[in-house]
Structure formats: C-alpha cells, structure tokens
C-alpha cells in the first residue's frame, strides 16, 4: 500500500479533531473515575441520553444541538447528584463499591440503553445544523466543520474544567477529596457534599459530549458501548486524575484510530482503544502523567 502525503496529513488532522472530541467524552470520567474513584461505567449511556435530548429538541423545535446541551446542563447535574446520593447511601458507605457498585452502574447503563430503544427504536438518528456539511480547505488539508466545531467546543469545555479544578476553591476541594478524604473531614468540610457536586459536574459534561457525538455521527442507543473502551483507555493512558494527561491521551488515540481506519478500514478502529488499554495496563499502569 503506498501512502500518499496528503492522505497521511489529512488522516492526522482528522485524528486530532476526533481526539478533541474524545477529550470531551472523557472529561466526565476523568473526574468521576480519576478523582473520586467511582467507576462509572454508565457514563457512555448518559452521553447517549444527551445525544437523544439534543436530537429530540433539534428535530422538533430546530434548536442548535450545542445550545440544547448547554441548557440541559442543570438537569444533567441534578441527575448526577441523585445518582451519587444513591450510590453513596447503598454502596460507598457500606464499603461495597467494588462488586455491587459496579453492578449498579452496569444496570444503569443497561436500563438507559433499553429505555432509549423502547422510546426511539434502533434506527440511527442525526441532527440538523448549518455547520454539518461544509468544510474549510487549507491547502492540502480538509477541515470538515462537522468535526471542527465539536473539537473546538470540546476543547473549550476541557479548558474550562481544568481552570475550574485548579483555580477555584471548589475545584481545589475536589482535588483535596481525591487525595485525602479523611483529612478534609477533619477540617470540618463535608467530603460527601463535595463528591456529590463533583459527580454532578461529571455527569453534566455528558450532556455536551452527547450533543457533540450526534453532530459527528448518527447515533443509535447501543453506540455508547464503543465508547466505554475508549473513555477508560484514555483515562488510564493519561494517568488517573490528570486532566492534561487525558487531553494528550485523547489526541493520541484519535490520531492512531484515524490512521488505522484510513489505512486498514474503519471496522478495525474500535480495537485500537483496547490495544492502548491493555498495553498501558501491562507496561505503565500509572499512565503518561500519572500520580
């Protein structure tokens, strides 16, 4: 197979755009799994829920999917806070998070997916917006707006989260919880409240990630499953709890996946993330920028 230069460059650019989007998808899990130690495997299901909300409002009222997702943020935050409360009361407090907590999230994933199937069916759904379709051409490089807009929104989301975590009082409190919950309790702060807020934020990001997903590709309820491997591969490769690490890992995965699908065919790309995950776990479990 001969590799032409512009094909290669375009594949890399497409990969970087995809990587930006992956960063948005991973941001939530970076908080919940990386900082709070909550293995929320249902996160992709919440993302798909976000996609369907964006789809439903977009098709019926013609509102831009990204605007919908921003308006829906408080609802997702509340959903996250409720889920955390149930999780805390039933599992974390009793020290049963490893087996039953995981089964709980798995059940949530399943319920969300099947409910969406019952309501919307298994057809692929897509949204309509002005920026889906046209591309910008920069010399050899093609920049489809369908990919560029989600990537920019994703980077903005990621940047905002990083600023929030490192610069604000609440953000630092979340980092403190991730480091030493007991110490925080001794300083008369309520770690459960902080974790609830953090988990709410983590689920809120799923709203935006969902809207971005349905802009990039048509969505059906079980699409989320392809993202489980990707999300956790990015999280682990970046280093748990490290947002910059997650961004680098997301870009890396995006580029490798894009190269794989350009040169070997798109049906192989889901396997890439798993290769990343296994290799990281086997050789550098701490990740690129791990603690």
């Amino acid at each position: 197979m001969d590799i032409s230069a512009d094909l290669l460059i375009n594949a890399i650019v497409a990969g970087l755009l995809l990587g930006g989007f992956y960063a948005a998808v991973t941001a939530g899990v970076s908080i919940s799994f990386g900082m709070l130690d909550i293995v929320n495997i249902a996160h992709p299901a919440f993302i798909i829920l976000g996609s369907y909300i964006a789809y439903f409002i977009n098709i019926n009222f013609g509102v831009d999917p990204i605007v919908v997702s921003i308006v829906a943020l408080p609802a997702f935050y509340a959903l996250g806070a409720v889920v955390y409360q149930v999780y805390y009361q039933s599992f974390e407090r009793r020290g049963q998070e490893s087996l039953r907590g995981l089964a709980f999230f798995f059940g949530l994933l399943f319920i969300t997916e099947v409910s969406l199937i019952l309501v919307f069916g298994v057809d692929y759904r897509y949204v309509e917006a002005a920026y889906i379709g046209p591309s910008i051409h920069l010399g050899l490089i093609d920049l489809p707006l369908r990919m560029l807009v989600p990537c920019l929104v994703a980077l903005a989301l990621f940047g905002a989260l990083q600023l929030f975590v490192t610069r604000t009082f609440l953000g630092r409190a979340i980092l403190a919880v991730s480091q030493d919950q007991l110490a925080l309790q001794l300083m008369a702060a309520d770690p459960i409240r902080i974790k609830r807020i953090a988990f709410g934020i983590s689920i809120a990001t799923a709203s935006i990630a969902g809207a971005l997903l349905i802009i990039i590709q048509p969505v059906e309820p079980s699409v989320g499953r392809d993202y489980i491997g990707r999300i956790f591969a990015i999280c682990v490769l970046g280093g748990l709890g490290s947002m910059p690490g997650a961004l680098i890992a997301a870009m890396l995965l995006g580029v490798v996946e894009s190269l794989t699908s350009t040169f070997y065919g798109p049906s192989w790309s889901p396997a890439v993330a798993f290769g990343f995950l296994l290799l990281t776990l086997a050789f550098r479990p701490a990740g690129l920028l791990g603690r």
Partner: peptide, 23 residues
C-alpha cells in the same frame, strides 16, 4: 495483564474485550 492492578481495571478490560473480539 490486568489482575495485578486494582479490581476496577479488570472489570473495564473485560468490558472492552467484547468490543474488540466483536471487531
């Protein structure tokens, strides 16, 4: 590959295994 680490990693890896084998 995964059991030497924390339990959650094994769970995540098995979840991803299905996707890869299907691929």
């Amino acid at each position: 590959l995964t059991l030497r680490l924390r339990g959650a990693f094994f769970a995540i890896a098995t979840l991803a295994l299905a996707v890869v084998l299907q691929t």
